[in-house]
Design a protein around this nucleic acid. Sequence first.
RNA 1: GUGAGCGUAGUUCAAUCGGUUAGAGCACUGGACUGUGGCUCCAGAUGUUGGGGGUUCGAGUCCCCUCGCUCACCCCA
Length: 425
Amino acid sequence: MSEISAPKGVRDILPDESWKWDYVFGVLRKTAADFGFSEVHLPIFEHTELFSRGIGDTTDVVEKEMYTFTDKGGRSITLRPEATASMVRSYLEHRMGTLPQPVKLWCAGPMFRYERPQKGRYRQFWQVDFESLGSASPYADAEIIALSLEAFRRLGLSRLEVVINSVGCPACRPDYRRRLTEYFSSREGDLCETCRDRMGRNPLRILDCKKESCRQVTEDAPSVYESLCGECREHFDAVRSSLDGLGAVYRLDKRLVRGLDYYTKTAYEVLSGALGSQNAVCGGGRYDNLAEAIGGPHVPGVGFAAGVDRILMVMEQEGCSFGKEPRLDVFGVALDFRSRAAILSVVDLLRKNGISADMDFNDRSMKAQMKAASARNARLACILGEDELTRGTVAVKDLTTGEQKEIAGEGLAQAVKEMLSTLKG
RNA sequence: GUGAGCGUAGUUCAAUCGGUUAGAGCACUGGACUGUGGCUCCAGAUGUUGGGGGUUCGAGUCCCCUCGCUCACCCCA
């Protein structure tokens, strides 16, 4: 169509949608505060090595999905593909280890991944990210999961499924890995090509292959639970019993492994039945080795990221409420050349009194201005003509009922406020 | 990166087997209604049929290339 267009995989959030985003962020902000999380604003680009070391060199995200470039100072810079690594970097850089632990932070903003776009997947997408840093307690895990579920509940999402798993720790994962490799070797012929490739690199990933043939093989694969070390097993049991205590409904899924290297112990995802193929609305878990991986001291942490684009999509699909759409209070209408100059002052006066007001700037007919007032869905029209000018008044019309009254100029702001408050809605 | 489907006005869609000047609803602008919106009626504006090449007397329609969009795989939010 037009040669003017945004790059592939990115999009504009226009006014008919942006107010809904405001609503969602408002709910999330309040939920964060209720759970004791403070907001931080982080940069959207970082040194490339933060991600390559933190997320893992062999992950898909780092191998082929990063927006990486060299800046004018010769540094390798990457547009963040996720926020957790930045969060931990910020914690370390600002010595938050000296604060009372855990430090609970959240942030919101765009993430970038070079992928082929499809439904629910963009190259720039928004996430809200919650991280609880400095505590190894299973209750921190449970709190994080509970927080994500409460946020979704408040937004009105219903068709959700929570799946959790434990991916072990450096003490027990090698053993599990060995047992998996052993098992898959015996069934190698039944695996797909990519899974055979995964055997050497990361056999855990075979578990979440969606091919039917591979799923049959993984059905009988050794379970993580038998391989978990005492500490991991205890931790996982504690997370589950606290979730039970909170009344959270979840499903254990031994196939859930997640794509980032830094996860230890708890891994979880929240899936929506209202989405298509890209149905994860939130994902997270514990990452006790991430801080060390990026060159810091040992700092345990747990957190999750939720996709805002997908949340909006699910809400739309499920018919959730977005609160009320912001509405213009007053539209100023002028009859002729003289009143046009005066109506600007009227609009200005209203604005300075906290009343939202707008007017026509194209010298259009009164009828056209009234039409514009309706099109803008204004509550009231303030009309000015010769008669009003000589009398020093303004005609105020309720655009819902059609009632109109004439109000003296001095009392206008007050009178409009009163009319708006009785309208309400 | 791989596969499939689709590209006609701002938008949703028409256009016979390949046939003459590419149409309609909605939206937009103006008017009927020279001081009042929503309803009604009338009028108007808007297209490189995504782009390029080919076949043909003739292409929106068929073929090739390309770009874009969409969905799926991979992976994830």
